[in-house]
Design a protein around this nucleic acid. Structure first.
Lengths: 199, 199, 199, 199
DNA sequence: TGTTAAGCGAGACGGTACGTCGCGTCTTAAT
DNA sequence: ATTAAGACGCGACGTACCGTCTCGCTTAACA
């Protein structure tokens, strides 16, 4: 019955928030500044996002919007395509690399934010699960492989380097990690044959 | 001619800072609260640490104090001992898992802090480098292996799970990751023999 | 085609406003709260009263609705009846005593409100003027008495005690003040005979 | 042991507060504006005064600083001098006339402020009490006169005209009121002789 | 073995941002 | 056309910490 929330206000605030993060870092991120830049009143921002952290999260979410799930026929090929896209679209921009620590920090002390962060995490990891499942169907990797291990060994090294070590991610690094992990998975698959292969 | 800085003040402030993080999380961490709890005056804290982030870093540093560099004769054994100690002493307590994002966030916008964080990082990764070097000497893994890849694939999955995914680290997960990575490294070493082995 | 302004909305809003003032004081008075309590939409309230202060005034006006103009044959008698009614119906409830300062404060900075307040004031003082005029006709008090002085000395002490001193008004106080002022007026009438008396 | 509160900050804030009230009225009075004008930080203002109203009160208090207690030998003379000073120093400036309603409004809803206001009131009324006592000693007015009645009839008409009616106070009005009230008091003293006079 | 400069606790200071509240205006759907 | 509902821009509220700066007091190294 009342006026609907202004989509324009939301859009303008998010855009200003993203700009602000890029220009001056998460540390300089403040609702007041977002309000000043966007022309959206502070109270309106608080109507849309209950607190600072929620706006940061929504700002970050856009980063993961275009995650792909390639299907090249081989795990190595899928991963190469996936990581290439990830590096290109996401980590290499430096945006999520700056946003994520702040977000995780916020999640560590606010369960509600933690929920949102978990959702964000699932969105990002879903492609890996799909690729791993396909590889398992093809018998490339052990059918009983713990999916957590798959995700951890495949994404872990890359995310670790970017977010924790705060280093650039170059192609040799990514290739080297994939070489190691894919070789390991293949070796395990051969030595502990899956039902599919033993058939 | 002047009185030396009170080591007791430093100790009390650090202890109160650690307690505060454990009890109420990084979010509740503030110089004012540390001063109130420790009985050390705010001005004294600022005399010892130039700013908030520096105290957080020093609080975190204690966490990595007891990192070990085991020497069991095999890469797998070394890693098992190392990760066990890491899990036990550090990540499993939840302390560094909360501190690190805050620290990294600070480092992302303050180069001086970044320097401190890099030092922290090196301290933690040094054992891995040592273990990898020994394994290379033994011919267990490729001699030309990029050390960054070694560190990334070995620590990455664990740190990723703890800090980014904010999940508990259990032994099956650690074992699974080590299985994959060590198998990969061994396979690569076999298929692309090192100079040492081919000799 | 148009619906007339809802008299019910007006009534409900006024009632809620009065309740709110009585229960929680003028300080807690807000349009938002009146809207919430009355079920009348905020926009509707603004259609009936152009601003906060106007609603406060209307809320106060009800207080003076039943002011009487007694005619007992003597000034002392008239005043006794008048003040008794005033004390009973108005000041003793504590309502106007709380509303008036807020209203006057509003009037001090908004001329439009000042106009409304002046009207309110005139309504209240009219009976005094009537009673004084009758007393002058009877020769009880000086014919050339400044009406402002009459009003001031007669109402002033009572209003002063209630609004400025924020004290209860008891009968001895009222009687004492009337004794002094009426005695003074009679004395002046005797010593400086009015045209009426000298005739 | 700590640094003492800055008297300069207090002084500058009070001065800015007074200026603000005079220029734009109590309605436009805000801590933020006082901070901006005075150059004293908002947080410092809140260190000195717990809330808006407290600063308003202190701003008003200055108004009554120079209240006199004349001793001319007659009640009429004392009152003339006293009211002249009051009119000159206080009400005529328009400052307290604007401040008082706001203060009283604040007192109506905050007991702590009410206490401060009561103190303010006592300070202002003390001279009246002294003058009345002297007049009683001289036998000018009834020895058993209720002091509340004395204060009410003497100040009430003036304060009423200024604060409630929001009118200018001119000399004829003051004189007229004093004529009435002093005449009344003398008459009562004559008709109900004090012990002193009967001696 | 005083002296004295620094360390210390306490906390005031100028700031910035927080998240809340109320204002008065406005848009929307329903009646 | 009026209403209920509530979003909007605006601006002040009072709070929490930041990092800096006096204050007196205490204390260890030097003279």
């Amino acid at each position: 019955m009342a006026r609907p929330r202004s989509e324009e206000a939301r859009r303008k605030a998010l855009a200003a928030a993203a700009d602000l993060v890029i220009e001056r870092g998460v540390g300089a991120f403040s609702i007041e500044e977002v309000a000043a830049r966007s022309g959206v009143a502070k109270s309106t921002i608080y109507r849309h996002w209950p607190e600072r952290a929620a706006l940061i999260i929504d700002t970050a979410r856009a980063t993961f919007e275009h995650v792909v799930t390639p299907d090249t026929g081989s795990l190595r090929g899928d991963l190469a395509a996936y990581t290439a896209a990830m590096v290109r679209a996401d980590l290499s921009t430096g945006r999520s690399a700056q946003l994520m620590p702040a977000i995780i920090d916020a999640a560590n002390r606010d369960p509600e934010i933690a929920t949102l962060v978990d959702r964000l995490k699932d969105e990002r990891e879903q492609p890996i699960c799909t690729m791993v499942a396909r590889a398992q169907t093809r018998g490339e990797i052990p059918a009983d492989l713990d999916i957590r291990v798959a995700v951890g060994t495949l994404i872990g090294p890359i995310v670790f380097r970017k977010l924790i070590q705060r280093q650039l991610i170059d192609q040799p690094y990514v290739d080297g990690c994939l070489d190691v992990v894919v070789a390991g998975l293949h070796t395990l698959a051969a030595s502990a044959p899956t039902p599919h292969r033993t058939a």
